[in-house]
């Protein structure tokens, strides 16, 4: 079981290396360079060769003995947290910093089990703090909520 995991990971590493090597080996013409200058693909090629060599050593080397039992228990929670962050990034572009942060915090707190009478006030306060410090105090331009354009 453990051995299979090692071969799978090592195989993926090797495949990545070979794909990158194929890209690096494709002809690249250097237009504006010193005739003695190093080719732009020389350095990446060196790195890819080391990567492929290390992947082979990893495949042949000692087997990993990772215990995935805890991971299996936690994967649903991890999935929820990841989905919550992905949703935050999506909404960030459309409803702006304050709205997306508030929504994210409410969902995130709920997922993490922080559910009491302080949940909503804390989420509003943190979102307000983020908006004030980044948009107002530091004056950083953030995405504008789409509904502002409709008004």
């Amino acid at each position: 079981m453990v051995k299979r995991g090692n071969i799978l990971a090592g195989g993926i590493f090797l495949l990545i290396g070979l794909c990158l090597l194929k890209v690096a080996m494709a002809p690249h013409e250097m237009l504006f360079a010193d005739p003695n200058a190093m080719h732009i693909m020389t350095y990446p090629k060196i790195l890819i060769f080391i990567w492929i060599g290390a992947s082979v050593l990893y495949l042949l080397g000692p087997r990993d003995e990772n215990d995935w039992y805890d991971f299996k228990k936690a994967r649903i929670q991890l999935g929820k947290v990841l989905l919550c962050i992905v949703a935050y990034v999506f909404t960030f572009e459309y409803i702006g910093l304050f709205g997306s942060t508030l929504l994210f915090l409410l969902v995130f707190f709920w997922i993490m089990g922080y559910r009491n009478k302080l949940t909503v006030p804390v989420a509003v306060m943190v979102a307000l703090l983020a908006w004030l410090s980044f948009e107002k105090l530091l004056g950083i331009p953030m995405p504008r909520p789409f509904f502002l354009a409709l008004l």
């Binding site: 890209v23 690249h28 237009l31 200058a37 790195l47 990567w51």
Partner: peptide, 29 residues
């Protein structure tokens, strides 16, 4: 696993090569 350290170091070095080459401005990966 010493090999893991080497792989991660190389991965870091490689990540920085993506984009335009700082010397010639030509594109890579």
């Amino acid at each position: 696993n010493h090999v893991k350290g080497i792989m991660m170091g190389v991965a870091g070095l490689f990540l920085a090569t993506i984009g335009n080459d700082p010397q010639t401005g030509e594109m890579r990966f």
